[in-house]
Simulated scan of single mutants.
Amino acid sequence: MSPAPRTSPKAGRAARRRAARAQETDHGLVHRRWWTPYLFLLPGLAMVLTFSLWPFVNTVVLSLTDAQILRGGGFVGLDNYRRALGDPAFWTALTNSVLYTAVVVPALVLMPLALAVLVERKVPGIGFFRSAYYTPVIASAVVVGLMWQWLLRSDGLVNTVLVRLRVVAEPVPFLTDGTLLLVSAMIVTIWKGLGYYMVFYLAALGNVPRSLHEAAAIDGAGALRRFLHVTIPSVKPMMLLVGTLSAISALRVFTEVYILGGESGGPGGDSRTLPFLIREVGLGFAGETGYAAAISILLFLLTLVFSLLGRRLSKGDER
């Protein structure tokens, strides 16, 4: 008997490829072009490039010019950034934004968690309370601001009640004092964000094993100790996420200050935040778009710092 003819390695590889293609064709999995999957990514990628990446690059370029609304600008390098760092209005707005974040973020991390714990229990009528707490989230920010403006003005409901009850002798200047105006805007932001972040915590609490609470209860832990030593450690990653998201939102706050304080940002502009200053500098016939773009980039860098801090804390918690 003669030995079987030997096939070359090249012919063997070709045969295996043909077999693989035949098998893929049988299962309907054949890919005729390597770039076919990328066609599905193209619409989303085009939107990101058009509405995110290109505007960001354009803002960076614009911040290096002295452009205005009605005329193009020439290249000035880092002059706009030097001007911002020497501008008292910029430092006032930066201080207000950082103070706003320092007050709002802890409140929006802790208060929605407590609210979620309260409405987590499945008791009759709890759905009504969940819906009621979430209602401010779906309301327009302008409508919410106008409502609170009506409540806090000198002849509004809050001052009327305080004066009638003789808690104060005269109306409290919630909207005409720079400090109180900023505090009022913080209250509006917290009130509107409670229901939104409550939903985050409800999802996190649903993943906490009941066995942990039962074991803690058997060991004699009360409701407060179970909350501190079981609930909080279990939802800590969600707390870090909420802290990061609320910090980014607080740094971008504009509507609350604008509705409550008007176009000037409160008396003397003392309650202006960075987004408010960007609008004020960049709009109008004399709007300095180059300078406004530079302030926008500085706000972006500040936001990036908070985002990286949240990411670092998340990684440290995972370790």
Rank of each mutant, 00 (worst) to 15 (best):
Q149I: 02
S184A: 15
W150N: 10
Y38K: 08
K315T: 09
S296V: 02
E280Q: 12
G220Q: 05
A221T: 03
E288T: 11
G195T: 10
R71Q: 15
A11T: 12
V48N: 09
V183L: 15
F306S: 06
V161A: 08
S8K: 07
R33F: 12
Y38P: 06
G86I: 06
D270T: 14
L70E: 14
L212E: 10
A19G: 12
T7Y: 06
G310L: 05
L78A: 12
V158T: 07
T176G: 15
G44Y: 03
L313A: 02
P233W: 13
V76W: 03
P275G: 06
V242T: 03
V30M: 04
T92G: 11
G290W: 09
L302V: 11
L251W: 00
L228R: 14
P267Q: 10
K315D: 06
L245E: 00
S63R: 13
N207C: 01
Y81K: 14
R319E: 14
L110Y: 05
A102E: 03
P9E: 04
Y134P: 00
R279T: 10
L146T: 02
L205C: 07
A223L: 07
V123K: 06
R71W: 14
G193N: 15
M239C: 02
M198V: 08
R121T: 12
A204L: 03
T65C: 12
E280W: 10
L45E: 01
A221R: 13
G316N: 11
P136L: 01
A67W: 02
Y81D: 08
L205F: 11
V143K: 04
V305A: 08
M186R: 14
R252W: 01
V144A: 07
E120I: 03
P233R: 14
V172M: 09
A102Y: 08
R82M: 06
T289L: 15
I69G: 09
A203W: 09
L277S: 03
L194P: 05
I248Y: 00
H27K: 09
R166P: 00
F254K: 02
F285M: 10
T273A: 09
S154Y: 05
L118P: 00
G282I: 11
S249M: 01
L298I: 11
E120G: 01
G145C: 12
S184M: 13
P171M: 04
M1N: 04
